[in-house]
Design a protein around this nucleic acid. Sequence first.
DNA 1: CGTATTTGACCGGCGC
DNA 2: GCGCCGGTCAAATACG
Length: 308
Amino acid sequence: MADQPRDHVYYHDPFHDQQRFFTTNSSSVAPDPSSYMSFTDCLQGSTDYGSLASAFGLSPSFQEPFSSTKKDQKPKMESGEAPVTPNSSVVLSSSTEAGDDEANNSKKSDKQTKGTGEDGGESSKKVSKPKKKGEKKEKEPRFAFMTKSEIDHLEDGYRWRKYGQKAVKNSPYPRSYYRCTTQKCTVKKRVERSFQDPSTVITTYEGTHNHHLPSTLRGSVAGLFPHSMLNPGHMAGMGFPNQDFLVQMPQMNHIYNYGGGTSNGPNPSMYQHQQQQQSNNLNQYQQLQLSDYGLLQDIVPSINKNHE
DNA sequence: CGTATTTGACCGGCGC
DNA sequence: GCGCCGGTCAAATACG
């Protein structure tokens, strides 16, 4: 069957009854929290991860398939198969499975300049290996989400320094690698654009911040994401041990429209419009989930392990 | 001049 | 064992 078993895709509509959330606007600090909830409010209000998990359609039982099985799938759909609906918005996922994101595919001749050797025999140019022998790199918790945005590098409140960029195999768009600039903080994040929906940015956080948000950046999107969500490790510690975490949030793109200063806050009409759309969004959720399934498998290899 | 980004090379894991 | 590929390093470059 060309289609993967997606009956286990974790689709949920946690915000169906919390539409206020969608009115969240990150262009500035929410001026009136009482009128609508921010992402932070929404999630912090839950305080405990159980609520958060349930809000995202997660349950303790569903943790099992995540951590048990091994990745052996060979999915991935051909590009151009099922376009993503414009209204698809955000997919969150976290993982500690240091499995490859998308090393699961057929190969394609790539011009990777490997072993060019250099004539000088300068062997000094080698990547130092800080880790001890036999000590495998620790698996950092990961947390990924998809966002509709024209901006590649979404502001999340932390300062990042780009340390690499690579062309990814099944996408015409490169993947950028960022590292938290705070000393002693080993958090990294990858940013890439969905090849299926160029308007969608996939951001993957890895590691746990050991510091607070830079004060100079308060108020941006940082305020929209609870600390726990920006710290996958915390999530893992809150009941998500070695689990992948997937969440979809419709219309999250509004959150990231701060870049151009175009979003000046939610207007009631839009709010209502979105409310009405919620009922229809169910199908759109599904479409996103289905059409991006291969992509999600890349991000969260274990997503389909639970099958069987 | 200091800091951030770019970019080619290298390394290690994994599949064949 | 070989080749592919993701991830990382670090010199070169750009920028403020």
